[in-house]
Amino acid sequence: MSAPLMEVRGLSKAFGKVVTARNIDLAFQAGELTSIIGPNGAGKSTFINMMSGSLAVDAGAILFLGRDVTRLPIHERVGLGLCRSFQVVNVFPGLTVFENVEIPVLVAAKRATRFFAPRAREAQAHEAVREVLERVGLAARAEVKASELSHGDQRLLEVAVALAARPKLLFLDEPTAGMNPVERVEILKHIRRLNQEGGTTFIIVEHDMDIVFSLSDRVVVLHRGDVICDGPPAHVQCDPQVRECYLGEEVA
């Protein structure tokens, strides 16, 4: 097995008495579409927040490409290729679709600090923007203001903005939240395809089990800050502990 893309060792976090991560050890391989699931309060959001740098860890280490990123600020993690999307739509609402994607592209190309050169001449960057928009299928709407897109398209745009930074690892936080079934199928197809096209490895944090099992290569189940199960979907589906804690609550 090759060296993992990302590895966490002994990750712990507690808010007062509520433990949201208890000594978690995990490794993620490049190209392996992984889902992290768990009932509400399992520690999924905490996990993603610690990975992306929004939240400091209590203990443990986060290694990305073999490098310790535990205390790195958000923008430097993004610079290394570690990015995330959000549960609530998180785009630049007042800017056009094109400009939304242009921002991370310019930053990634280290051209964002040019303050006296016309943006219009950033041909290379604009090529990259168009390419990303093609990939997610938003090219036709490039000049539309982001706030005027439908909800589903805004989520797609969000994926596009995240992809534009050319991340090696991209966390998607409940990518289908608030979507109708049609949009849901649509975005899942996109994610599956984008993961296969290579370059970016996706880790999805989800609440909805169906999505996860149809999509992932590997499923990690969190419960009250512990990893209670980890393996291929078929294995996880049959795990009695998972069924008890997770499905039990789901039915109730």
Binding site: S52, P73, I74, H75, E76, V78, G79, C83, R84, F86, N90, V91, F92, P93, G94, L95, E99, E102, I103, P104, L106, V107, A108, R111, A112, T113, R114, F115, F116, A117, P118, R119, A120, E122, A125, V161, A162, A164, A165
Partner: peptide
């Protein structure tokens, strides 16, 4: 010039959504 530069666009991005701008990799 500043307004129509890449830098100017990042500033607009920070106004629109500074969290997103941070996750676009910018040291806001």
């Amino acid at each position: 010039r500043i307004r129509s530069s890449p830098f100017g666009l990042i500033l607009a991005g920070i106004r629109e959504n500074h969290l997103r701008a941070e996750f676009a990799g910018a040291n806001i």
